[in-house]
Computed example of a mutant assay.
Amino acid sequence: MRESAAERHDRLLALVRERGSARVSDLASRLGVSPVTVRRDVEALAERGLLDRVHGSVSWPSSAGPGTPAAGGGPVLGLLAPSATYYFAEVIRGAHEAAASAGARLILRISDYRPAEDKARTEGLLAAGAEGLLIAPGWQAPGDQAAYGDWMAELPVPSVLLERQPAPGSALDDLDRVCSDHRHGVLLAVRHLVGLGHRAPLLVARSDSPTALAVRAGYEEALGALGLDRPHRVIDSAPAELDPGRFEEAVREVQTAVTSGRVTSVLVHNDVDAIHLVQRLAELGVRVPEDLALVAYDDEVAALADTPLTAVAPPKRHVGLHGARLLIERLGTERLGTAASGEEPGQHLALLPRLHVRASCGAPAPTRITR
Rank of each mutant, 00 (worst) to 15 (best):
Y87W: 13
G197P: 06
A98S: 07
L277G: 12
Q279V: 14
A171M: 03
E253A: 15
A274K: 08
E3M: 15
H276I: 05
L321G: 04
A212F: 00
A6G: 00
Q347E: 14
A81E: 02
D306P: 12
H318V: 11
V272M: 10
G74V: 04
A146N: 05
A225H: 15
A363I: 04
A189D: 10
G224Y: 02
L193K: 14
R114M: 13
A44L: 15
R177T: 05
A98F: 05
G261F: 06
V194N: 06
T307K: 12
T367L: 15
A250W: 04
H318M: 13
G224T: 08
V295H: 07
G143W: 07
A5Q: 15
V268T: 08
L80V: 08
G195P: 06
Q145I: 03
E7S: 14
V301F: 12
V178P: 02
A28I: 02
R354F: 00
L336A: 09
V234F: 02
R325K: 05
V319E: 08
A217G: 05
R230G: 06
D271M: 09
C179M: 13
L45S: 03
G169S: 00
V268A: 07
V286T: 06
C361E: 05
G20I: 05
L15H: 09
G32H: 06
E90K: 11
G185R: 06
A116P: 04
G169L: 03
P364T: 03
R335V: 05
A282S: 10
A46N: 04
H348P: 07
L228R: 11
S21C: 01
E97A: 13
P142C: 05
A282Q: 07
A99H: 07
A167Q: 14
V204M: 11
V186G: 03
R93E: 15
L77E: 01
A100I: 01
A189P: 11
L15I: 03
G132L: 01
G73R: 12
D10G: 14
V54Q: 11
E290C: 10
G65K: 00
A136Y: 01
G67W: 00
V301M: 10
E117V: 12
P314K: 04
Y87Q: 12
G78V: 03
R183N: 07
R206M: 12
I369V: 15
A296M: 12
A293I: 02
P366Q: 12
I235Q: 05
R216W: 02
L172G: 00
G245C: 05
R287P: 07
G261N: 06
A311F: 00
H322S: 11
S360Q: 01
G103C: 11
A5R: 15
V301R: 11
L77I: 11
L125H: 00
E248Y: 03
A28V: 01
L277Y: 13
E220K: 10
H198L: 04
P168G: 01
A250Q: 03
A136W: 00
L15S: 07
A324P: 08
D291N: 12
S25N: 10
A141C: 00
S29E: 15
G218H: 01
T85M: 10
G227D: 05
L327N: 07
A128G: 11
A340P: 00
S265H: 03
S260L: 10
T310E: 08
P66V: 13
P364V: 07
G49M: 06
R354I: 01
P201N: 12
G49Q: 09
A116L: 07
P137F: 02
P345Y: 04
D229L: 14
A303Q: 11
W151H: 09
